[in-house]
Simulated scan of single mutants.
Amino acid sequence: MTEPRGSAFPFRIDQRTGGVAMTEGPDKIRDDLRVLLGTRLGERPMLREFGTRINALVHEPDDDVTADLLRKQAHEAVVRWERRVIVTRATVDRSDGELRLVLGYVHSDRPVAAEMIIPLV
């Protein structure tokens, strides 16, 4: 199986080559997860179902209901749109007045485990 390869996120220019910065392998999958979780549902005109409603939770109270909605929406989006990973853990850390999604996953084609922490800003 070939390594996933594509433009880096956030988009930038490679200082060495002057071209578009590229990422591949586990870094590309991580970038794609960040894009998925940072995209508002309905934001992409040709792919309205891509993304999450996480951004709508920004002004909600810091309580168990909001934490559960955040966890559930992120988990469902990753399961639906990112088949290169298997979610092993989706929890919400509530500390310092912030909600943070902790997403643990393994790559579906190799034994590589990773974790992302996404703050709800």
Results as ranks from 00 to 15, higher is better:
1 M>A: 14
2 T>C: 04
4 P>Q: 07
7 S>K: 14
8 A>L: 06
9 F>L: 02
9 F>V: 09
9 F>Y: 15
10 P>D: 09
13 I>S: 01
15 Q>K: 15
15 Q>W: 10
16 R>T: 12
18 G>A: 10
18 G>N: 08
20 V>T: 15
22 M>E: 12
23 T>D: 03
24 E>P: 00
26 P>A: 14
27 D>F: 09
28 K>D: 04
32 D>C: 15
32 D>M: 12
33 L>M: 07
34 R>Y: 08
34 R>K: 13
34 R>P: 00
35 V>E: 03
35 V>T: 05
36 L>C: 07
36 L>V: 07
37 L>H: 03
38 G>S: 10
42 G>W: 03
43 E>A: 15
43 E>N: 02
43 E>Y: 10
45 P>D: 05
45 P>H: 04
46 M>Q: 11
48 R>C: 00
49 E>S: 14
50 F>P: 01
51 G>W: 02
51 G>F: 07
52 T>R: 05
52 T>M: 09
53 R>K: 12
54 I>T: 05
55 N>Y: 13
55 N>W: 14
56 A>D: 15
56 A>R: 15
57 L>D: 05
58 V>Q: 11
58 V>T: 13
58 V>G: 00
59 H>M: 12
63 D>W: 08
63 D>Y: 10
63 D>P: 07
63 D>H: 08
65 V>C: 04
65 V>H: 14
68 D>E: 15
69 L>N: 12
69 L>C: 10
69 L>F: 12
71 R>V: 06
71 R>N: 04
72 K>A: 11
73 Q>M: 11
76 E>R: 13
77 A>H: 04
77 A>G: 09
77 A>V: 09
78 V>W: 09
80 R>L: 14
81 W>G: 08
82 E>I: 05
82 E>G: 04
83 R>N: 08
83 R>T: 11
84 R>W: 06
84 R>Y: 02
84 R>K: 05
85 V>H: 02
85 V>S: 00
85 V>R: 00
87 V>G: 01
88 T>P: 03
89 R>G: 07
89 R>L: 13
90 A>P: 07
91 T>F: 04
94 R>I: 14
94 R>H: 11
95 S>V: 14
98 E>H: 14
98 E>I: 12
98 E>P: 00
99 L>E: 00
101 L>S: 01
101 L>A: 05
102 V>A: 04
103 L>K: 02
103 L>E: 02
106 V>Y: 01
106 V>S: 11
111 P>C: 01
111 P>V: 13
112 V>W: 11
114 A>I: 01
114 A>K: 00
115 E>F: 02
117 I>R: 15
119 P>H: 06
120 L>H: 08
120 L>V: 09
121 V>N: 12
